[in-house]
Write a protein that binds this DNA or RNA. Sequence first.
RNA 1: GGAGGCGUCGCCUAGUCCGGUCUAUGGCGCCCGCCUGCUAAGCGGGUUUGGGUCUUAAAGCCCAUCGCGGGUUCAAAUCCCGCCGCCUCCGCCA
Length: 427
Amino acid sequence: MIDLRLLREDPDTVRASQRARGDNEGLVDAVLAADERRRASLAEFERTRAEQKALGKQVASATPETRPHLLAQTKALAEQVKSLEADARAADVELTDLSTRIDNVVEPEAPVGGEDDYTVLREVGAPRDFAAEGFTPKDHVELGERLGAIDLDRGAKVSGARFYFLTGVGARLELALLMCAVDQAVAAGFSPVITPTLVKPEVMRGTGFLGAHSDEIYHLPADDLYLVGTSEVALAGYHSDEVVDLSQGPKRYAGWSACYRREAGSHGKDTRGIIRVHQFHKVEMFSYCRVEEARDEHQRLLAWEEEMLAKVEIPYRVIDVAAGDLGSSAARKFDCEAWVPTQGRYREVTSTSNCTTYQARRLNVREKDPREGVTSNRFVATLNGTLATTRWIVAILENHQQPDGSVLVPKALQPYMGGLDVLTPVR
RNA sequence: GGAGGCGUCGCCUAGUCCGGUCUAUGGCGCCCGCCUGCUAAGCGGGUUUGGGUCUUAAAGCCCAUCGCGGGUUCAAAUCCCGCCGCCUCCGCCA
């Protein structure tokens, strides 16, 4: 949901944002017109309603002679009020409908353009030179199968394409990775949370996931519930319809959940292995903070992601995602992409978004306005960022493999695997 | 799955049977002021939220808001219907 006040006072900023995203600029004027209509029809309704209330009060104390006349008058007014109220409501629906089509206003520094127009901010760590080491790296599927870590055949047998079993050291590796992420988050002051993975429509809508990409989301029609694609959804809904206290700093949560994605638009993409799957696990950072603090908080989330990537000792790069690829909620987004040796390219393993007040508006998350002399409430900013997911296993296996098919366990994860420092092939 | 009870302004609470005097009572907490060596007490005032309007801004005025959504009525916290949540009991499953 866009800030209507901003739209009224500074429509050019919103137009520029629409342009950067490659979205319809004309929508801005359509919303302005609808806003005008809504306010006019609301004023008309409220004026008439006030008249009706005043007159209605007289009925109670009217004398038997004046009562019939008053009743006739007020009856007619009641009719009018009813129809004016319907008008006002229709105008409001129209405004909401139009204004929710405008995605969050992008930060001016975000690169303009679409998916391929990202900017590379930095590359960290050097990819291994397997040729120099004298062997050809195996991909995560082959490594995973030989280690007895990933069972794709049985995943397909039981649940279909893009499902898998993590077994033995694979299961332990995922648990280790996620526990390590939770511990890092807790050390940084986050509250760990295990969230529901089924949410109501209004929460899913509030986070901005039911827009253009709603076919990515699993829906259970019998119960009208949605399966979340990330715990961000549940954590954004966590404080919905609340006034939160941010006087002691941001409220930070580390959500642990299963994540479900239909991958409807990606037939044929990443069909091999566990890079793109229907179900995986993730530890997600989520922060509620004051609008003035959101940009700094975004940088902090990114830094925590990089801290976690350093722990698993994987080369990666950081990209500044272009405006057209932000999704509806984000004003700015940074992805960390890990080096995948057998693909010879970087693949997304984290993503952090500054959603400013966009989600908070839709989910009604506010704080007491801390500014001097202001007594009302105002919307907060929400941000999220990935701390670890199942997909990281791909990068860990491939980057730390040995010529014999064994895989070295990153130091930081060893304590979480009972001290195990190397995964050895079982076949 | 079945039966019953409850849901009022941060918390507690009056009001609901029998519609208008509810502009929602009172207490606690909180805020401001007065008074007082200090503190406490006492006294006075304020204290739901959202929107509209006016204004540089504030104040003011108006509308909505008694779990949510409909309905009846000139008029709904109050009457009717549906839903949600919590509690108690019964049944079923683990």
